[in-house]
């Protein structure tokens, strides 16, 4: 494995971390439109917190996918074709959600508006759940042939770990979204988001225990890399506790950081466990490795240069847009 290959493996993880952190709270806010908001005004208030940002946040997923295609074409090809129906469902979720923002603004009847508010909720629930399933499906051994084709069975895609994984990611994003709402709103939703999170955090603790147990049973994470896996799991718990503590102390920024770091740690856990593979085969000889899944050194070099120039520029205006909309969205009741 070359340094460049390692760098791009890490960069793909970084892009997914960006996506989990940023689109994580977007999804969470989408879920909160039904789980937290009590009426149309509150829903509008919640959606206004992500209105200017959700599209840019989603670009992190597009970039992660594009960068994966560019740096590890064999991984991209095997992953997306192998989990065909799951990726299709992610797309359906993202489509339903993506059009809802604009369409709801144009709807003229209460019914029409409610349709697009519902597609926002369903899409915001569907996308993280299925993505959680995919990410926990690829850390278990899969039937992969010599050419790298993944013939994933239903059991490979839907099993205890993938369902718990899907629930865990969805739950974590909901908590993250509620923390974002606490930071970005005023009034009743702000206090209720805190109260809801104070309850949900206990579900998260339970979820983490089950998740860690299933990791032990269904993956080789604890046997192949016991030290780092153990450390990341401990960190997951620590940052969950930090989130809990900051919810109790009503420190909103710290809560958001806590839940965000937990989401990032999920990605780190998966990439750490995969390393040096990108796809794990039941027949170990057919596992797809970083070493032979990547593009040529020339392509990786060009992409490194391009990223070094473009990413800081993109980050600069990306962050600027958050500073422009730093104010809280007030509640209708005043």
């Amino acid at each position: 494995m070359s340094g460049l290959q390692l760098l791009w493996f890490i960069l793909i993880a970084v892009l997914f971390i960006g996506f989990f952190f940023l689109e994580g709270f977007d999804f969470g806010v989408g879920m909160a439109t039904r789980l937290l908001a009590k009426n149309e005004d509150e829903r509008d208030q919640l959606i206004a917190t992500i209105g200017p940002h959700w599209d840019g946040n989603e670009v992190w997923l597009v970039t992660a996918g594009g960068a994966m295609f560019a740096s590890f074409p064999m991984w991209y090809a095997s992953l997306f074709s192998g989990f065909y129906i799951l990726f299709f469902l992610v797309l359906v979720g993202l489509i339903l959600r993506g059009v809802s923002f604009e369409f709801a603004g144009h709807a003229e009847t209460a019914w029409g508006r409610s349709v697009w508010r519902w597609t926002l909720f369903i899409g915001s629930l569907m996308a993280p759940f299925i993505l959680g399933m995919i990410f926990t499906a690829i850390i278990q051994p899969l039937p992969i042939d010599k050419a790298g084709n993944v013939f994933a069975t239903l059991g490979n895609q839907v099993n205890l770990l993938t369902i718990v994984g899907g629930v865990a990611v969805t739950l974590l994003m909901l908590i993250h979204g509620l923390n974002f709402i606490r930071l970005k709103t005023t009034g009743s939703v702000r206090t209720r988001a805190r109260a809801l999170n104070a309850k949900l955090i206990w579900v998260l603790y339970a979820g983490l225990v089950v998740f860690a147990g299933l990791l032990f049973i269904s993956t080789d994470f604890f046997t192949a890399r016991p030290l780092s896996t153990g450390l990341i799991v401990v960190l997951l718990v620590i940052f969950a506790v930090l989130t809990h503590y900051s919810i109790a102390k009503d420190n909103e920024l710290l809560s958001l950081i806590g839940s965000g770091v937990d989401l990032a740690l999920v990605v780190v856990l998966i990439f750490n466990g995969l390393f040096p593979r990108v796809m794990i085969a039941t027949n170990a000889a057919n596992s797809i490795l970083i070493q032979n899944a990547s593009s040529s050194p020339l392509t990786l070099t060009i992409m490194t240069i391009v990223t070094a120039i473009l990413l800081p520029i993109a980050l600069a205006y990306f962050i600027w847009s958050y500073t422009v909309f730093h104010k809280r969205v007030p509640s209708k009741e005043g």
């Binding site: 594009g66 295609f69 560019a70 590890f72 074409p73 090809a77 593009s295 060009i302 992409m303 391009v306």
Partner: peptide, 14 residues
Amino acid sequence: GDIFGAPLAIEALL
């Protein structure tokens, strides 16, 4: 992949 990927990634980043 070796050809298509880079333009696609640049498209996303830029």
